[in-house]
Protein backbone atom coordinates (compact mmCIF):
# COMPACT_ATOMS: atom_id res chain seq x y z
CA UNK A 1 0.00 0.00 0.00
CA UNK A 2 1.18 3.50 -0.81
CA UNK A 3 1.81 5.15 2.57
CA UNK A 4 1.06 8.60 1.08
CA UNK A 5 -2.71 7.85 1.11
CA UNK A 6 -3.12 7.23 4.87
CA UNK A 7 -0.80 10.16 5.64
CA UNK A 8 -2.90 12.39 3.37
CA UNK A 9 -6.07 10.93 4.93
CA UNK A 10 -4.75 11.71 8.42
CA UNK A 11 -4.31 15.42 7.60
CA UNK A 12 -7.64 15.48 5.76
CA UNK A 13 -9.28 14.01 8.89
CA UNK A 14 -7.73 16.72 11.09
CA UNK A 15 -8.95 19.38 8.63
CA UNK A 16 -12.49 17.93 8.54
CA UNK A 17 -12.54 17.74 12.35
CA UNK A 18 -11.67 21.44 12.72
CA UNK A 19 -14.09 22.36 9.93
CA UNK A 20 -16.78 20.51 11.90
CA UNK A 21 -16.00 22.66 14.94
CA UNK A 22 -16.29 25.83 12.83
CA UNK A 23 -19.67 24.65 11.44
CA UNK A 24 -20.79 23.97 15.01
CA UNK A 25 -20.01 27.58 15.91
CA UNK A 26 -22.00 28.84 12.91
CA UNK A 27 -24.92 26.56 13.74
CA UNK A 28 -25.14 27.81 17.31
CA UNK A 29 -24.88 31.43 16.17
CA UNK A 30 -27.77 30.98 13.72
CA UNK A 31 -29.84 29.13 16.34
CA UNK A 32 -29.28 31.88 18.89
CA UNK A 33 -30.15 34.79 16.63
CA UNK A 34 -33.85 35.70 16.27
CA UNK A 35 -35.01 36.86 12.83
CA UNK A 36 -35.57 40.61 12.62
CA UNK A 37 -38.33 42.33 10.73
CA UNK A 38 -36.80 44.68 8.20
CA UNK A 39 -38.93 47.67 9.26
CA UNK A 40 -37.39 47.65 12.73
CA UNK A 41 -33.81 46.55 12.02
CA UNK A 42 -31.32 47.61 14.66
CA UNK A 43 -27.63 48.22 13.96
CA UNK A 44 -25.25 45.31 14.45
CA UNK A 45 -25.43 41.61 13.61
CA UNK A 46 -28.88 40.77 12.24
CA UNK A 47 -30.70 37.87 10.67
CA UNK A 48 -33.32 38.64 8.03
CA UNK A 49 -35.37 36.76 5.50
CA UNK A 50 -36.98 38.22 2.39
CA UNK A 51 -36.98 38.44 -1.37
CA UNK A 52 -34.69 40.25 -3.79
CA UNK A 53 -35.82 43.56 -5.26
CA UNK A 54 -33.56 45.56 -7.63
CA UNK A 55 -31.85 48.61 -6.13
CA UNK A 56 -31.65 50.43 -9.46
CA UNK A 57 -32.21 50.01 -13.16
CA UNK A 58 -28.81 48.43 -13.73
CA UNK A 59 -28.62 44.66 -13.35
CA UNK A 60 -25.83 42.18 -13.87
CA UNK A 61 -25.88 39.55 -16.59
CA UNK A 62 -24.82 35.99 -15.85
CA UNK A 63 -21.56 35.26 -17.69
CA UNK A 64 -22.69 32.12 -19.55
CA UNK A 65 -26.49 32.35 -19.89
CA UNK A 66 -26.83 36.15 -19.98
CA UNK A 67 -29.73 36.00 -17.48
CA UNK A 68 -30.35 39.16 -15.43
CA UNK A 69 -29.21 38.82 -11.85
CA UNK A 70 -27.86 40.70 -8.82
CA UNK A 71 -25.12 38.21 -8.03
CA UNK A 72 -23.33 35.46 -9.91
CA UNK A 73 -20.52 33.01 -9.31
CA UNK A 74 -18.86 30.96 -12.02
CA UNK A 75 -16.41 28.13 -12.42
CA UNK A 76 -14.63 26.95 -15.56
CA UNK A 77 -13.24 23.41 -15.43
CA UNK A 78 -11.15 21.36 -17.80
CA UNK A 79 -10.99 17.58 -17.91
CA UNK A 80 -7.44 16.30 -17.63
CA UNK A 81 -6.89 12.64 -18.25
CA UNK A 82 -3.93 10.63 -17.12
CA UNK A 83 -3.92 7.08 -18.43
CA UNK A 84 -7.32 5.43 -17.90
CA UNK A 85 -8.53 7.90 -15.28
CA UNK A 86 -9.04 11.61 -15.32
CA UNK A 87 -10.33 14.47 -13.24
CA UNK A 88 -11.79 17.94 -13.53
CA UNK A 89 -9.44 20.85 -12.82
CA UNK A 90 -10.76 24.35 -12.09
CA UNK A 91 -8.97 26.75 -14.38
CA UNK A 92 -10.89 29.91 -13.54
CA UNK A 93 -13.51 30.96 -11.02
CA UNK A 94 -14.94 34.22 -9.80
CA UNK A 95 -17.98 36.09 -8.53
CA UNK A 96 -19.64 39.47 -8.90
CA UNK A 97 -22.51 41.17 -7.13
CA UNK A 98 -24.30 44.50 -7.04
CA UNK A 99 -26.27 46.00 -4.13
CA UNK A 100 -29.95 45.00 -4.04
CA UNK A 101 -32.91 45.40 -1.72
CA UNK A 102 -34.24 42.64 0.46
CA UNK A 103 -37.97 42.93 1.04
CA UNK A 104 -40.18 41.32 3.66
CA UNK A 105 -43.79 42.07 4.69
CA UNK A 106 -42.67 45.10 6.70
CA UNK A 107 -40.17 46.90 4.46
CA UNK A 108 -37.01 46.86 2.38
CA UNK A 109 -33.34 47.19 3.22
CA UNK A 110 -30.28 47.60 1.02
CA UNK A 111 -27.88 44.64 0.91
CA UNK A 112 -24.33 44.84 -0.36
CA UNK A 113 -23.29 41.24 -1.16
CA UNK A 114 -19.59 42.10 -1.35
CA UNK A 115 -17.60 39.93 1.05
CA UNK A 116 -20.48 37.54 1.80
CA UNK A 117 -20.27 33.77 1.73
CA UNK A 118 -23.08 33.04 -0.71
CA UNK A 119 -24.67 29.59 -0.73
CA UNK A 120 -26.93 28.74 -3.66
CA UNK A 121 -28.54 25.31 -3.50
CA UNK A 122 -31.63 25.69 -5.70
CA UNK A 123 -30.97 23.81 -8.99
CA UNK A 124 -33.01 26.48 -10.86
CA UNK A 125 -30.33 28.99 -9.90
CA UNK A 126 -27.56 27.02 -11.56
CA UNK A 127 -26.66 26.61 -15.24
CA UNK A 128 -24.08 24.27 -16.65
CA UNK A 129 -22.73 24.22 -20.23
CA UNK A 130 -20.02 22.10 -21.70
CA UNK A 131 -17.84 21.71 -24.73
CA UNK A 132 -15.88 18.79 -26.11
CA UNK A 133 -15.09 16.83 -29.24
CA UNK A 134 -17.33 18.18 -32.03
CA UNK A 135 -19.26 20.37 -29.58
CA UNK A 136 -18.56 24.11 -29.27
CA UNK A 137 -19.52 26.05 -26.14
CA UNK A 138 -22.43 28.57 -26.45
CA UNK A 139 -21.60 31.98 -27.96
CA UNK A 140 -21.73 33.82 -24.59
CA UNK A 141 -19.27 31.33 -23.13
CA UNK A 142 -16.95 31.83 -26.12
CA UNK A 143 -17.10 35.62 -25.62
CA UNK A 144 -16.44 35.24 -21.90
CA UNK A 145 -13.46 32.94 -22.50
CA UNK A 146 -12.02 35.33 -25.08
CA UNK A 147 -12.37 38.27 -22.69
CA UNK A 148 -10.40 36.33 -20.06
CA UNK A 149 -7.72 35.13 -22.47
CA UNK A 150 -8.87 31.50 -22.18
CA UNK A 151 -9.27 29.02 -25.01
CA UNK A 152 -11.63 26.08 -25.43
CA UNK A 153 -9.47 24.61 -28.19
CA UNK A 154 -6.21 22.79 -27.76
CA UNK A 155 -2.95 23.24 -29.63
CA UNK A 156 -4.29 21.30 -32.63
CA UNK A 157 -7.49 23.35 -32.87
CA UNK A 158 -9.66 20.59 -31.37
CA UNK A 159 -12.19 21.31 -28.63
CA UNK A 160 -11.02 20.54 -25.13
CA UNK A 161 -13.42 18.74 -22.78
CA UNK A 162 -14.57 21.61 -20.58
CA UNK A 163 -17.55 22.59 -18.47
CA UNK A 164 -18.79 26.01 -17.47
CA UNK A 165 -21.01 26.40 -14.40
CA UNK A 166 -22.73 29.51 -13.10
CA UNK A 167 -24.83 30.12 -10.00
CA UNK A 168 -26.88 33.26 -9.64
CA UNK A 169 -29.34 35.20 -7.52
CA UNK A 170 -32.12 36.91 -9.38
CA UNK A 171 -35.21 39.02 -8.73
CA UNK A 172 -37.84 37.61 -6.35
CA UNK A 173 -35.51 34.85 -5.13
CA UNK A 174 -35.95 34.34 -1.40
CA UNK A 175 -32.87 34.76 0.76
CA UNK A 176 -31.73 34.16 4.30
CA UNK A 177 -29.10 36.70 5.35
CA UNK A 178 -26.99 36.96 8.47
CA UNK A 179 -24.89 40.10 8.29
CA UNK A 180 -24.17 43.43 9.89
CA UNK A 181 -26.71 46.24 9.66
CA UNK A 182 -24.70 49.43 9.27
CA UNK A 183 -24.98 52.96 7.91
CA UNK A 184 -25.94 53.17 4.26
CA UNK A 185 -23.05 55.16 2.74
CA UNK A 186 -25.36 56.52 0.02
CA UNK A 187 -27.77 58.13 2.49
CA UNK A 188 -26.99 60.82 5.04
CA UNK A 189 -27.39 59.69 8.66
CA UNK A 190 -30.83 60.04 10.26
CA UNK A 191 -32.48 61.31 7.08
CA UNK A 192 -34.66 58.25 6.53
CA UNK A 193 -38.28 59.18 6.04
CA UNK A 194 -39.52 55.65 5.61
CA UNK A 195 -38.25 52.70 7.59
CA UNK A 196 -34.62 51.75 7.25
CA UNK A 197 -33.49 53.50 4.09
CA UNK A 198 -30.38 54.81 5.89
CA UNK A 199 -29.36 51.26 6.82
CA UNK A 200 -27.44 48.75 4.73
CA UNK A 201 -26.64 45.10 5.43
CA UNK A 202 -23.06 44.20 4.58
CA UNK A 203 -19.88 42.74 5.97
CA UNK A 204 -19.20 44.16 9.41
CA UNK A 205 -15.85 45.27 10.72
CA UNK A 206 -16.34 43.49 14.08
CA UNK A 207 -18.53 40.54 13.10
CA UNK A 208 -16.75 38.09 10.83
CA UNK A 209 -19.88 36.28 9.76
CA UNK A 210 -21.64 37.45 6.61
CA UNK A 211 -23.73 34.73 5.12
CA UNK A 212 -26.30 34.72 2.31
CA UNK A 213 -28.27 31.58 1.48
CA UNK A 214 -31.24 30.68 -0.68
CA UNK A 215 -32.31 28.13 1.94
CA UNK A 216 -34.82 28.68 4.72
CA UNK A 217 -33.36 28.87 8.22
CA UNK A 218 -34.73 25.42 9.17
CA UNK A 219 -33.15 23.75 6.12
CA UNK A 220 -29.94 25.62 6.75
CA UNK A 221 -29.76 24.41 10.36
CA UNK A 222 -30.62 20.85 9.36
CA UNK A 223 -27.85 20.85 6.77
CA UNK A 224 -25.38 22.43 9.18
CA UNK A 225 -26.30 19.79 11.78
CA UNK A 226 -25.33 17.02 9.36
CA UNK A 227 -22.14 18.84 8.42
CA UNK A 228 -21.21 19.26 12.10
CA UNK A 229 -21.83 15.59 12.87
CA UNK A 230 -20.04 14.46 9.69
CA UNK A 231 -17.15 16.84 10.25
CA UNK A 232 -16.46 16.06 13.91
CA UNK A 233 -17.18 12.32 13.99
CA UNK A 234 -16.07 11.68 10.41
CA UNK A 235 -12.86 13.61 11.06
CA UNK A 236 -12.06 11.60 14.20
CA UNK A 237 -12.83 8.31 12.43
CA UNK A 238 -10.67 9.24 9.45
CA UNK A 239 -7.75 10.26 11.70
CA UNK A 240 -7.95 7.03 13.72
CA UNK A 241 -8.42 4.86 10.63
CA UNK A 242 -5.44 6.43 8.86
CA UNK A 243 -3.26 6.12 11.97
CA UNK A 244 -4.16 2.42 12.13
CA UNK A 245 -3.11 1.95 8.50
CA UNK A 246 0.14 3.88 9.03
CA UNK A 247 1.11 1.84 12.09
CA UNK A 248 0.09 -1.40 10.41
CA UNK A 249 2.35 -0.45 7.51
CA UNK A 250 5.29 -0.01 9.89
CA UNK A 251 4.36 -3.08 12.00
CA UNK A 252 3.93 -0.89 15.09
CA UNK A 253 0.71 -2.49 16.30
Amino acid sequence: MNIAYPIGGFFLGVYIFFKGLIWLKQKRLIENMPTSKIRSLAMGLVEVFGEIVPAGKKMLNCPFSGKECVYYRYKIEEYRSSGKSGHWVTIKKGEKGIPFYLKDKTGMVLVNPSGARVEISNPNLKNRFDSGFGRDPPELVKKFLASRGLNFENFFGMNKKMRYTEWFLSLADKLYIMGTAQDNPQVEDATARHGVEDVMIGKGSHEKIYYISDRHEKDLLKRLGWKVAGGIFGGILLVIGCLLLIFLNFNML
Binding site: F17, G235, I236, V239, I240, M252
Partner: peptide, 16 residues
Protein backbone atom coordinates in the same frame (compact mmCIF):
# COMPACT_ATOMS: atom_id res chain seq x y z
CA UNK B 1 1.17 -2.36 24.74
CA UNK B 2 2.49 -1.55 21.28
CA UNK B 3 3.52 2.08 20.86
CA UNK B 4 1.27 2.47 17.80
CA UNK B 5 -1.86 1.49 19.74
CA UNK B 6 -0.91 3.91 22.52
CA UNK B 7 -0.59 6.78 20.06
CA UNK B 8 -3.96 5.92 18.48
CA UNK B 9 -5.71 5.87 21.86
CA UNK B 10 -4.02 9.12 22.88
CA UNK B 11 -5.00 10.78 19.59
CA UNK B 12 -8.61 9.62 19.97
CA UNK B 13 -8.84 10.85 23.57
CA UNK B 14 -7.09 14.11 22.61
CA UNK B 15 -9.50 14.85 19.76
CA UNK B 16 -12.56 14.00 21.86
Amino acid sequence: MAIGLGIIILTFVGLV
